[in-house]
């Protein structure tokens, strides 16, 4: 068991292997994830019951919750990759961070935007400085810093190391940010909006929500593979294996 895992890890570090496998996996992941998203969106938008309190606007939940949850998961996975890169110097981890950062930033943006659009008709405000929203905003800023850092180094390896350092410092700091905003918030506005207040969500609403979360995670897997492939094709342009592969296609 351990040996197969170890083999898998070593294979994962190899660009040609990854390029070959990802080419096979990507079509399936793409079709599956997009059809899941379409199904869950249609289900959520048209067939799930209307919320008694919020009316139809609550249907934004089918886009908001998956986006926010996946944006955090992407950041944590990136910090694991950063540790792997700093400790074992695995090049693939650098590729992973670089390719996933824009995707994470995009989904954090979708989460913030959909939250604002949801909040306006429901609670009468686009934005509240509460702990969740502020820490998501800070997460977005970290993503931007990571993306901005990519271009400031001439050598690829230094850029990857710098980005890994930032990612790790960010993941150490994020809980502190969350906690401190929590404390700060309690002084200014007690009992503010709690967006996930509806703890007893009915199963007819929950099922499409779970489906859409699954769809978004698969979609991130799909686009992640795709952009890692793109990144590899940029980095390895002059390598022999890449020339062989692209002539074969």
């Amino acid at each position: 068991m351990f040996q197969t895992l170890k083999n898998f890890y070593h294979k994962l570090g190899s660009f040609p292997w990854f390029y070959k496998i990802s080419g096979k996996v990507i079509p399936f992941a793409g079709v599956l994830s997009i059809s899941l998203i379409v199904i869950s969106s249609i289900w959520g938008l048209f067939f799930s019951p209307t919320d008694a309190v919020q009316g139809d606007v609550y249907r934004i939940i089918y886009f908001h919750v998956p986006a926010v949850s996946v944006s955090q998961v992407i950041y944590y996975s990136m910090s694991i990759a950063a540790a792997v890169f700093l400790i074992w110097r695995m090049k693939m981890a650098g590729v992973y961070i670089k390719s996933l950062a824009p995707i994470g930033a995009a989904f954090t943006f979708i989460g913030l935007m959909s939250g604002a659009i949801w909040g306006q008709p429901t609670w009468g405000t686009w934005w509240v400085w509460d702990a969740r929203l502020t820490s998501t905003l800070v997460l977005f800023l970290f993503y931007l810093a990571i993306i901005g850092m990519q271009s400031t180094f001439a050598s690829r390896k230094s850029a990857d190391t710098a980005v890994s350092i930032i990612t790790l410092v960010g993941v150490v700091n994020l809980p502190i940010v969350k906690k401190s905003v929590d404390w700060w918030n309690t002084l200014h506005q007690p009992a503010s909006i709690s967006i996930t207040g509806e703890s007893s969500i009915s199963s007819e609403m929950l099922l499409p929500l779970l489906l859409s979360i699954l769809g978004i995670y698969l979609f991130v897997f799909f686009t992640g593979l795709l952009s890692m492939r793109a990144e590899i094709s940029t980095r390895e342009q002059n390598k022999d294996w890449f020339k062989k592969v692209s002539n074969y296609n």
């Binding site: 800070v138 800023l141 810093a145 960010g170 401190s180």
Partner: peptide
Amino acid sequence: LMLPLSLP
């Protein structure tokens, strides 16, 4: 990089 870190 510095300003979001200093938020807490």
